[in-house]
Every structure is written in structure tokens, then in C-alpha cells.
Design a binder for these strands. Sequence first.
DNA 1: ATCATGCGTGTAATCGATTCCACGGCGTCG
DNA 2: CGACGCCGTGGAATCGATTACACGCATGAT
Lengths: 338, 338
Amino acid sequence: MASIKDVAAEAGVSAATVSRVLNSHPSVSEEARTRVLAAVEALGYRPNAVARSLRTAQTRTLGLVISDVLNPYFTELARFVEEEARALGYSVIIGNADERPDLQDHHIRTLIDRRIDGLLVSPADGGSPLMRDVALSGTPMVFVDRWIPGIDVPVVRADGTGAVKDLVAHLHGLGHRRLAIIAGPAATTTGNERVEAFRAAMRELGLALPDAYIGQGDFQAASGRRATERFLALAEPPEVVFAADNLMALGALDAIRAHGLRVPDDIALAAFDDIPWFVHTDPPITAIAQPTADLARAAVRALADLIEGRTPQSVTLPARLVVRRSSGGAATNQRSDR
Amino acid sequence: MASIKDVAAEAGVSAATVSRVLNSHPSVSEEARTRVLAAVEALGYRPNAVARSLRTAQTRTLGLVISDVLNPYFTELARFVEEEARALGYSVIIGNADERPDLQDHHIRTLIDRRIDGLLVSPADGGSPLMRDVALSGTPMVFVDRWIPGIDVPVVRADGTGAVKDLVAHLHGLGHRRLAIIAGPAATTTGNERVEAFRAAMRELGLALPDAYIGQGDFQAASGRRATERFLALAEPPEVVFAADNLMALGALDAIRAHGLRVPDDIALAAFDDIPWFVHTDPPITAIAQPTADLARAAVRALADLIEGRTPQSVTLPARLVVRRSSGGAATNQRSDR
DNA sequence: ATCATGCGTGTAATCGATTCCACGGCGTCG
DNA sequence: CGACGCCGTGGAATCGATTACACGCATGAT
């Protein structure tokens, strides 16, 4: 593979001049420029990004560590992150933590070793010492979706409080009083916040939320199934199950179906995170939709701001309720409004 | 960030010795080794992967270029690819082409510029000149799922011929005679092969496959919707629609529902690529399942073989039919067998 | 005529690692 | 007792770029 020296030799100039042409430095004669460009063309030369990074101490690469690529919400987030990063001239390396703190640490370490310019993280846990160190070490870092209290970096996320309140009101309006929730891991902010928003909304309407109606999940389908089975085994099972993410909703649907019950007639269902498939499930699932594309864009911009020395902003965008058949409200098989 | 020189100074040895310790070179005294390790610990030193890559001319990184991350089949593939690569000591950088040849080229170029050790590609088109050049240039490369005829690199893929034949026989057994297919782009091998397998299976049973029953899609949901609408507008619409990937099946379901028709009573549906959501759609969708994890592992191993100087093997694994309600066969709401 | 200015260019240092080569010291063998 | 070999180590070259600095030459001002 041709190096800058080969190009220099071919063009009859020094490597310095080639570099200047490639970085559009002003003081290069028109003649040298054309000769260099011709040589570049002739040799099919492409600058070695590794060497360039070593010298300039920047890689024009962002790291994105997400908790679970198989979760369509995060896949979508990753897609938009890459899109915005590309527009800003960065590449993205994705690390999938599979909700495992050890894997998360592995990826963070690898990314740092590669000297990525900045890190976008949706932490899988309450905060490994490593993450704290990285943040303190001055590596530009932004949290997206989930964050870790006590680590002082910008956070870009959706606020579901309003939408959860709308959801509870909607269900209450349909006559439901016994609402249960499948929570995410307590170590994640999204796990806690969604339960708290739910609890607050219930209290506001004078509804009780007994402990038995709070299932512990881990954002994976299997845990949604288990939690739902426990609900159904209660002497007085809930009339509604609200899953704190889309995969657990899938598990809940599984469990409900396995018990021969119908949604929404026997039990209603709703989920946090809206995904395209929810329009096509049986029945279509009522969900709280996050503005994924906007979150991704805001997160990348905040990170780029941090990297390039500007002052980044934390951003919170509202989520919104999308009512479908599974909650019992929308009787008609309406088209999705996504 | 501490460099090897800082460690050397701290340990009172030369950088060469530090390097030898870190790469477990045999000829280092026990005393030097412990002093170096202590210094590494004290400084929290981590080797700079960029510098190392420049010197050793290898990055221990694989590039994976897929046609569409939002397609659950590819997301799953990517996940398993990363898993196997990690086991073999490689990192993976994913490039999402969004079924766009220009984006595909962008990612390939970026990955080559970063001097990845090898490239795993599921080409979005029939073969850009760039891909041909890269293959010829000697960059280790393996095709996965889709490939490009005429480019001589190993191919790891699933063979759906048998499963498509099973599917057609299954539908024929249910009394269906008018079967339509929504094809993928003719520029992709998977696009063509699936149509050919379908055509062959039909011929074998003495069934006609008129041109009007071959819809042109692009592996995206919208194209599945359009193709299905054209089918439904025919004087004699098909009794079955077979979509060549899961997203187009989703579009087909949309279109069928918009026409107020029921699956499978009014029209049956089947898809290539099985995904977890197909169990939960209304109705559950009959699909042809690929052994995604095995494909990913085989592809990574073939690429590692190529990189490390061993002789790689092309691999073809069989896909298999999973019958669910959408084809009209499985009357019961059976549990998924995934 | 002289000197400052500036432009285009090349030389060389540098980034952080790896690795070839040489050197000093010690043990072994003839 | 001298020569040889081996072991542990450090010096220095190297990978492929970027960039500070210096130099030569032309131009313009004084």
C-alpha cells in the first residue's frame, strides 16, 4: 500500500509538500499541487489513518457503548448516532454490553486504548469504577438514555414522566384500578425513573401500588415473562401490565398467551419504548415513544461540542403516549401514527 | 496519558524492556519484570493501540459492512460476529450501508483507511468497482449472507433451496395454487436465489409463476407494501404472498390489513428470515430460519484463517422452514420452536 | 544598492510503540 | 587460562504521517 513517501517520489516533491496539499494548507504552488494530486491519483494513495492519528492525537472516531444491540430501541439509536456523527466527520465504533457490566468495561477499555475522541454511553449498571475513572480522566463523555448520578457529564435523555401520567390516566379512564409494572434493573436510571413516574401518577389518582404489583425485570424478554407469571399467579391479578421496555413487553405477551388469556379483554398491556413491530403484534401494543432520532442527534452534538472545546448542553426531550389496542382504549384497528 | 517512556522511567529500565515485559518476551529478568509491572500498575498505564498498530501493521480489528442494521436479521448477525471475533481477540467495527451502495463504499473506504485486518461484507449491490479493487488488493475479505459473483473470496451463507421447496410443498398441500413472491433487489444474490428456488419449487409441482406474481422489492418494508398492493389489485390476486425478507413481510402485512383482508383466511403469508417478533405478530408468521449464530461464527473464523495465513473455507449451511399460523397450516397457536 | 518581507519548499523532530543489533558480564568447555 | 556462547539489557531505527523551523529566492521599500 502506497505511503506518502511514494507519492512524494512520484510527484518529485517532499513528503511535507504532499501533506500540505492533502490538508489544503495555503502555501503550496499551483504547480506542486497538481503534480501531487496526479501522483495521488496514479498510485491510488489513501492516507494511513493510523499514522495520522498517532501524530495528531485524534482519531475522529466516537465510541458508543449501548446496553443491548438486539433491543430495537438501541439499534435505532445507534443508527441515528452514526448518521449524525458521519455528518460531523466522525466514525462510530459500537460496543454492545448485552446488559453485562463486565462486557461494558471491556468495550470501554478497548475504545480508550484506541484513543477514540469521545465516548457516548448508555450505562448497563450503576457505575463501574472504570467509568468513573474515564470521566475523571478528562475523556470527553456524554450519557445517552441512561446515566449515572454523581458522574458529572452531560446527559441526553427522554423524560417519560408526562407520558406515563397520560398512560395511567388513560387506563384509569377505562376503569382499570389494579395496575402492575415490570421494572428495569434498579441500577439503571431508566429502571428507576419509570417506576417512580408510574408510582407518582398512581398516587395522584388515588390508586394503590402494592409491592406485589412491582415485578423485577432486567430489560430482557425472559424476565418480562417471569414477572408476568408471578402477577398471574396472585390471588388478585392486575388488570393491566406495564412493561418498562419493549423486550419485557414481549415476554409479558408470551406469558399472558401461555395462560390462555386475551389482550386487552382479560388483561391490558402497555410498554415503554415504541418500535415498528408494535403496530403488527396481536394486538397492537400501546407504547410510550421516545424521540430517538432527536436524542441521537443531540447526544452526538453534545459530544462533538465537548471534544471541540465548546460548552455542551444536557438535553431532555419529552416522550409521548401512543395508544393502540392492547390497552383496551382504541377499539378500532387504526393505522399507526408513527 | 502515560506512555511507555513514563513507565520505563518509573521502573528504571528502558522502553525496550517495558515492551518486552508487556509482550511476554522470554528474555527479561524476573526482577525487571516485577519492577515494570509495578510501574504499569502505579501509572495506570495502557498501551496506545494506535502506536502499536502503526509499528506492527496490524490492528486486530475486523470491519463488518452490513446492508441494514435495522433489519433484525443483520443485527443478530452483527451481534454474533462481534462475539466470535472477541473470542478470537479481535474487535469489530460495524458499517451500516442502509442498502445504499454509496454508503457501503464510504464505509469500506473508511475501514481500509483505518487499516482493519480484514473485512466481512454482505454487499448491498452487485459489486462496486471499489469492492473489486479491495478484493484484488489482497485485503483479507469474506462475504457473508450475500456475495458477488466473480470476486474470488470465501462465502459464508445459508442455502434456502430446500426450505423454500418445503414451504411451497406445504402451501401446495393446503390447496394453494396461486403463489406470489416479493423479490429482493436483482443486484443481490439473496434477491435472485430466493426467487430462483421459488420458481424451481413451483415448476417441480407443475405450478405456473406468472410475471405478475413476482413483485420487485428492495428488502425494505415500504417496498413490500407496494408490491402487495399491486398483487391485490390484480383481477386474480394470489392466494399466498411469500416475502424474500422479514421487513418486506411486515409491509405486506400492512397492505393486506389495509385492504381489510385476513391472514391466513383471505390470503396466506410467509417470509424468508425468522425473527423473534414473528411469534407475536397477528397472526404468527411462517418463516424460513437461517442459522444466524453459526453463519456468524463460520464467517469470522474464515476471515481469521485468511488473516493468519491459513486456508479459509467457504461454508453453506441449510435454512429450515418454521410453520406458523400465517400460512394457514398450523391451526393451533403453538409455542415457537426457536 | 541594501535590506526586510514573504512565499514555497525541504529537513528534521515528533507521536508511542516494536524489534534488530550490539554490548557487557558471566558461565562453560577445551 | 583463554575463547566462545548465552542472557539480559539499552540504543537506535522504524512505521507513516504532521508541522516547526530554516533556507533560498524574488519582490518591494527605502
